[in-house]
Design a protein around this nucleic acid. Structure first.
Length: 504
RNA sequence: GGGUCGUUAGCUCAGCUGGUAGAGCAGUUGGCUUUUAACCAAUUGGUCGCGCGUUCGAAUCGCGCACGACCCA
């Protein structure tokens, strides 16, 4: 692949490509290699929508419908002096009918028949229906717009090689309709999330992706370097702290659909760069955010699946009923029936419980961290229908506001569907002094070897010292949302260009 | 990081217990004016992922490596 030390890498060539290059050379010779003069007037999906209802006879009798279409030729059936071909454009396919005698002398045999599958073609003519009832264009003018030099995958089996689907997504998109559908749904989901938040009075903003101090999450960052300023920078792991600075500044409802970066392993649920939406609303609390989230997800289910019953990998999740709300403690008790609340009351009992459940805990863990480990190991994967888990311990929530009655926990929730975390929201910590203390605790953890612990962000503390109104904020993972609503088992299937190892 | 499976023609795949590599599609040539994975006939095309080893002989057996898929941590 592209290697900066080898500017002219060997390209794999074969006889098929050589033949196509020869055809291209002939086109260059004639001065018509890559024209940009053909202007289409019609796309296939519109034509089907408008004219499929007409019968063969009706189309033949009415005033001819003249159309100009363009697209990639994916199939061709040559029957002597007449041919059918299938062109694919953005949203669909249209068949064209080409005859020798309606084209300029010699064009059919010396041009049209020499074109290849994969070539991009423009065609002009009138609509008709074939004997089998397929809406088609009876061609009176046709031209080769772009020569394709590389053969497409098997026209029937499509592209099966998983690696090539990911590495050469353009080929996958050309030949696999399911793949095109997935990414069109992804686009609609993002669009709907944006629309939903704007409707609720949020303002879309863009904050830096290169951070001097990475913050807003516990994760390992990517490092980079600014040459002119000769300073290290990090790719953001979350936009959170910048969005809250904006709330301090008086933008009381903001959101950012953001790409963030985490320098961690790859899995079916993790890509080093991923997309989420974070939104913050002043003068409200996390209960309101749960309501928003429930409303949004129910809308997305209807929009993408057309039902409140969302199928996923052989299961069905129920988005129709009110989403369950359960505290972390109750979730632990529910999914570990032999456990009693007393087992969770103090550090020693909880540690013993973890051991009996085979949940690994470090000596440095406090009670809150132990709860969280037990929850993640024994309950999380059982939360199938949409479920909000609330009352996260403060120990694992360094940016969340403590609960007024019980300072051990925070006013926080996470949303689980199909055993996976989809969203995380909480009342924001706006006490600058408390935040400074928690940053210090994180720095101590970092010094003790936890390389995911947070840095001390002094400017953020200064921002809070100016006063941030009571605020609730949330992040929703867009990639996981798309996986859910497109029934895809791995994050790579919903990323256009997933991260891959360097190929040889 | 560990385990299992995979990598053969441009694509989709066969290839058994080792004996000089096969099909369909695509390509090329010819035929065919309503086909639709069009069809019919002929035909081109291979560093069997890479390296080392075992063997008279390796796509096939062994070891190592690369990449990918799945499972586990």
């Amino acid at each position: 692949m592209a290697n900066p030390e080898n500017p002219t890498p060997e390209v794999d060539e074969n006889k098929i490509i050589a033949e196509r290059r020869a055809k291209l050379a002939a086109l260059r010779e004639s001065g018509h290699s890559y024209p940009n003069t053909f202007r289409r007037n019609d796309v296939s999906s519109d034509l089907h929508e408008q004219y499929n209802a007409f019968s063969k006879e009706e189309l033949a009798e009415m005033e001819p419908v003249r159309v100009k279409v363009a697209g990639r030729m994916l199939l061709r059936r040559i029957m002597g002096k007449a041919s059918f071909a299938t062109l694919q454009d953005t949203h669909g396919r249209i068949q064209i009918y080409v005859t020798r005698d309606e084209l300029p002398e010699g064009f059919y045999n010396t041009q049209f028949k020499k074109w290849d599958l994969g070539d991009i073609v423009g065609a002009e003519g009138y609509l008709f229906k074939t004997n089998t009832g397929e809406l088609s264009v009876h061609v009176e003018h046709i031209e080769l717009i772009t020569k394709s030099l590389r053969p497409l995958p098997d026209k029937f089996h499509g592209l099966q090689d998983q690696e090539i689907k990911y590495r050469q997504r353009y080929v996958d998109l050309i030949v696999n309709e399911e793949s095109r559908d997935t990414f069109m749904i992804r686009s609609k989901i993002v669009q709907h999330v944006r629309h939903f938040l704007i409707q609720k009075g949020f303002m879309e903003v863009e904050t830096p992706m290169m951070h001097v101090i990475p913050g807003g999450a516990t994760a390992k960052p990517f490092h980079t370097h600014h040459n002119a300023l000769d300073m290290p920078l990090y790719l953001r792991i979350a936009p959170e702290l910048y969005l809250k600075r904006l709330v301090v500044g008086g933008f009381e409802k903001v959101f950012e659909i953001n790409r963030s970066f985490r320098n961690e392993g790859l899995s079916t649920r993790h890509n080093p760069e991923f997309t989420m939406v974070e939104f913050y609303s002043a003068y409200t609390d996390y209960n309101q955010l749960m309501d928003y989230t429930e409303e949004l997800l129910k809308e997305l289910a209807e929009m993408t699946v057309g039902s409140s019953q969302v199928p996923y990998q052989g299961q069905v999740f129920d988005f129709g009923k009110p989403f369950a709300r359960l505290t972390m403690k109750d979730a632990i008790l529910k999914y570990n029936p032999s456990t009693s609340a007393a087992n969770l009351d103090d550090l020693e009992s909880a540690r013993a419980l973890a051991k009996s459940l085979n949940v690994h805990v470090e000596d440095s863990y406090g009670l809150g961290k132990i709860w969280t480990e037990i929850f993640e190991e024994t309950a999380e994967e059982k939360l199938m229908d949409p479920t909000f888990i609330t009352e996260y311990p403060a120990e694992v929530s360094p940016l969340a506001r403590r609960n007024d009655e019980n300072p051990f926990i925070t006013d926080r929730f996470e949303l689980f569907i199909g055993g996976r975390e989809l969203a995380n929201g909480f009342n924001e910590l706006n006490d600058a002094e408390d935040q400074a203390e928690r940053f210090k605790a994180q720095v101590e953890a970092k010094d003790a070897g936890d390389d995911e612990a947070m840095h001390y962000d002094e400017d953020y503390i200064v921002a809070l010292e100016h006063g941030m109104p009571p605020t609730a904020g949330e992040g929703i993972g867009i990639d996981r949302l798309v996986m859910l609503f497109t029934d895809k088992p791995t994050i790579r299937d919903v990323l256009l260009f997933p991260h891959m190892r360097q190929a040889d």
